[in-house]
Write a protein that binds this DNA or RNA. Structure first.
Length: 293
DNA sequence: ACTGTACCCTGTAGGC
DNA sequence: TGCCTACAGGGTACAG
């Protein structure tokens, strides 16, 4: 479900109730999600204060006073919902069953500040684990991750050199978390559309041999950054079941230019093309063959 | 190296 | 109404 903008939106929603608060009680309601929970999961959390909450790629990272980090991944359908102790939503925008089926509430955090945070995940592709904060960069899950697309390190030079020898499609190149961390299916489609680049093009055809990017790479970098920034600003997108931590919906889905629009007219003024759906690496790609070359 | 396929699991939308 | 199929934002393993 969640790509970078959604995870960042969740982070911003959780930060004020998690940071500076302690885990008073942790209810772990099953053995595992995608993976088993780590040994002594509850014991290693209870009593610990969260000192900061960060996002890396599509992971949420809660730094604990124990020196450990609670790393959380939402998979496809994971979401966090915040309530007060009485079980009422913090906000009154809780319509449409935004709380999800309680059968899929797998973890409940009761915090020292009174907040109750439920992790709900119907498909259970998400997971939680605990890792040492000091060596997080070396951790299996994190050591291979590529650059954050909203950081200074994401430059045309970086992308140019990463693409240089890649014969895979541009779409699968951009989906690769070892290259860019946090991009997913929707935002890759949207970025390629905005940059006017075909998802089928070989990644290497984008790059220049000199190491100095030509025109296409900077355009793609700008497209990725602006698509992500706009989505974060809009509070992420909502497809099917994504909800913000207060149960409300994101708004970015109203802004999709190509994603999910197969058969509809290309929105670029001069273009008479039709958005097409193809499958690449087992995932849907939406693009306009007329203006994406 | 890269692609396609299957898989993890449940919910939902659409066709009949 | 139900039953069936296809598909879903993520990621990994494996065969070719």
């Amino acid at each position: 479900m969640p790509e970078l903008p959604e995870v960042e939106t969740v982070r911003r929603g959780l930060e004020p109730v998690l940071v500076g608060s302690r885990f008073q009680e942790v209810e772990q309601r099953r053995e595992g999600l995608r993976f088993p929970f780590p040994k002594q999961f509850v014991r290693r959390l209870v009593g610990m204060e969260v000192t900061r909450l960060e996002r890396r790629a599509k992971y949420l990272l809660a730094y604990l006073t124990s020196g450990e980090v609670l790393a959380m991944h939402l998979g496809m359908s994971g979401r966090f919902l915040i309530e007060d102790r009485q079980g009422a939503s913090k906000s009154d925008r809780f319509a449409n069953g935004g709380g999800g089926d309680p059968r899929h509430d797998h973890v409940i955090f009761r915090m020292s500040n009174g907040a109750v945070i439920r992790y709900n995940d119907a498909r259970r592709f998400g997971f939680m684990t605990l890792a040492s904060g000091a060596t997080l960069d070396q951790h299996k899950l994190f050591r291979g991750l590529g650059v954050e697309p909203l950081s200074e390190a994401f430059t045309p030079e970086y992308l140019n050199s990463a693409a240089r020898n890649k014969s895979q499609s541009l779409k699968s190149f951009l989906m690769d978390q070892k290259i860019i961390a946090g991009l997913g299916n929707i935002y890759v489609c949207e970025s390629l559309y905005q940059a006017g680049l075909s998802p089928r093009r070989k990644a290497s055809t984008l790059a220049t041999a000199s190491g100095r990017p030509g025109k296409r790479v900077p355009k793609l970098v700008s497209a990725i950054v602006s698509v992500l920034e706009n989505a974060v600003r809009a509070g992420g997108s909502t497809l099917r079941d994504h909800r913000q931590t207060d149960g409300s919906l994101g708004y970015f889905q109203h802004c999709f230019a190509v994603y999910g629009r197969a058969g509809l007219a290309c929105q670029k003024k001069a273009c008479q093309g039709t958005v097409q759906r193809i499958v690449q690496n087992g995932r849907s790609t939406f693009f306009c063959p007329r203006c994406q070359k």
